[in-house]
Design a protein around this nucleic acid. Structure first.
Lengths: 161, 161
DNA sequence: ATGGATAGTTGAAAAAGTCAACGATTTATT
DNA sequence: AATAAATCGTTGACTTTTTCAACTATCCAT
């Protein structure tokens, strides 16, 4: 983690309270790193009028997996009604399109348009840079390790890639 | 991670969308594990009429470090006004006490009362169990590694303990 | 001694999260 | 086949959380 201020970068000063036992608490560590990362991500994505949420939806829409809104809601840990709002906005901007589910006509699959795919390409690059900034304190190997452990904590040993 | 349903526990089914590239995104992984952890934490703490937030404040108040509200806000990545509300409530319940800062009379240090300390003891045990549940998929060594990497990402190599 | 910054507090406004209901459709039961 | 129960997306109401600008009291630099 670094804090960037007007182009200049300095290491985050280690806070006095780091000595408190909460610094050993997983929930706190996740919340804090997530908060810092979200701020950077949202700043990076603002250029494309995206936020972390809409960016996530766009990625899933562009994945080729033709996810339904319900699948997105489950996977992103969001309420289905929030997905409606996110897809509404992306659809209005012509970045994604809804289509009726093939087997299930109740469901709607969400797919990125060509325009959405192009925007995603650029946005991903910005997000990649933001992530690098968050992981600034970790060498590449440990960054990979951290992400691998997070995936394993979420889904167990059976991991993609 | 496991999902507990009415006492019974089952492994979380690996979602179809895990194959999407967002599963490699640090922000997403943090958000998802944090969301799952928060739910478990809050459920565990509800017994004590605490939430993650008030629990965090109580820990810091009990740390012996005599943090000011501002220090708490910085450390917990919260707005100072949110700390006011949290401390107000804990103080009303007799779990913490405000005292004027010794060097700086603008500042107020927050300290846990004996009652607060006792409650924290029990609540910590509940939180510890919740954390264990989140880290269910990881062997002890990897859990420790994950937490160490999170700390390092946040504060660099200079770590407590 | 004055001016500018900072701590806590308040209150308002915006954003996000929660939840129950509904129509359309699917799945299960008889 | 008919009916019942469950599910998907959507809407709207409601609550909670977040954000931000003011304000007082106090501190710090000059």
């Amino acid at each position: 983690m670094t804090i960037g201020i007007e182009g200049e970068q300095r290491a985050e000063p280690v806070h006095k309270l780091v000595a408190a036992s909460i610094s050993q608490d997983l929930g706190f560590l996740l919340a804090k790193l997530h908060a810092a990362g979200s701020a950077l991500n949202n700043r990076a994505l603002a250029e494309f009028d995206l936020k972390e949420r809409s960016y996530s939806v766009l990625i899933l829409a562009n994945s080729g997996l033709e996810p339904t809104q319900r699948e997105m809601a489950d996977f992103l840990s969001l309420d289905p009604s929030q997905i409606v709002a996110l897809v509404d906005e992306l659809e209005k901007r012509g970045l994604v399109a809804r289509a009726p589910g093939k087997q299930d006509r109740r469901a709607k699959t969400v797919t990125a348009t060509a325009k959405g795919g192009k925007m995603l390409e650029q946005a991903s690059e910005a997000a990649r840079r933001a992530e690098a900034e968050v992981l600034d304190g970790l060498p590449a190997e440990e960054s990979a390790q951290l992400k691998a452990l997070l995936r394993k904590a979420l889904w167990g040993a059976a991991l993609p890639e």
